[in-house]
């Protein structure tokens, strides 16, 4: 903490503005793809825009993180800076938890209140008048209006792929922790081994998840359009999957950095942040497994 005595001010940086332009162009492109597509207009221009935006974003990510890594390697970060990063990452994960909380909340509300009401039970049971013949059940395979939303033939049971996926993710949380201990103890080879194992587990998880989606769409007619079950199912597992992808990417970057000899036993925040993130992704999955698949 010697450096705390004397503060200094950061350099100017072009990355934030590049990131803004990148994000803005990407999202404007995505929105245009959706809107033009819906109105039956050409989406070529929108796609071009999207790709340009995505390229700028990629450039920014490499540049920004690259310079952070360089600075960190050059030993420019004080212990205090390190704490700021920790607070930052911690609260960022909290914000992610709240993002998922919104979807879990929606799921609970639908299951506990909406579907029973539509089926004629509870405080707003009179509603069933509008949906004659509709019966509440969960998982919901017969929607109130099957013409607008044909239900799935069947839903995915918990004890097949999802169980395997659970085991994969839970073990990956272990492996990453073992890797972390190895890093702290300065055992490079062990670190690489266990970090590598974590990444493999992550990728297998993603592959299986993709297979499950194909199965759902192809064989079960379980789609985004198949009513509230499909909506909540894909929303939750889909966003989780996206986060797993991001987490895997982080772990892969860490692997590359470890291979390049980055990090020391007491200075490896990048690694720790990725590991935190990975645990978060894991915990969300446990919630999913219980509330989406089992119950």
């Amino acid at each position: 903490m010697a450096q705390e005595q004397s503060y200094y001010v950061p350099e100017q940086s072009k990355w934030p503005i590049v990131a803004t332009v990148g994000l803005g162009v990407t999202l404007y492109g995505v929105a245009s793809i959706m809107v033009n597509g819906k109105q039956g207009e050409s989406t070529t221009g929108a796609w071009v825009m999207f790709f340009i935006g995505a390229l700028i974003m990629a450039y920014m990510l490499f540049g920004w993180f690259g310079s952070v890594i360089r600075e960190s390697r050059a030993g420019l970060y004080s212990a205090q800076m390190d704490r700021s990063f920790r607070w930052g990452m911690g609260w960022f994960i909290f914000s992610e938890i709240m993002f998922f909380a919104a979807f879990f909340g929606a799921l609970f509300y639908v299951r506990v209140f909406v579907v029973p009401w539509l089926g004629g039970e509870g405080d707003k049971g009179t509603t069933n008048m509008l949906w004659e013949g509709f019966q509440a059940s969960w998982p919901l395979v017969n929607n109130p209006n099957p013409e607008a939303y044909p239900g799935p033939k069947e839903v995915i049971g918990p004890w097949g792929l999802p169980l395997i996926n659970t085991i994969l993710l839970v073990s990956s949380s272990f492996t990453v922790t073992v890797a972390h201990h190895a890093l702290k103890a300065g055992q490079r080879q062990k670190l690489k081994l266990w970090l590598g194992a974590t990444i493999v587990l992550a990728l297998v998880f993603l592959t299986l998840q993709a297979q499950e989606y194909v199965h759902a769409y192809k064989d079960l007619d379980l789609t985004l359009q198949s009513g509230i079950y499909g909506s909540t199912f894909f929303m939750l597992t889909g966003f989780h999957g996206a986060h797993v992808m991001l987490g895997s990417l982080m772990l892969i970057v860490m692997f590359v950095r470890v291979s390049k000899g980055h990090f020391t036993g007491d200075n490896h925040f990048g690694f720790e942040a990725s590991a935190w993130y990975w645990h978060f992704v894991d915990v969300v999955w446990l919630g999913l497994f219980v509330f989406v698949y089992i119950i």
Partner: peptide, 17 residues
């Protein structure tokens, strides 16, 4: 998602609200 991908979070005919 409701607007562009056909989900039914806010549509009773699909079990939403």
């Amino acid at each position: 998602m409701d607007i562009n991908f056909g989900t039914s979070f806010f549509d009773a005919s699909g079990g939403g609200d």
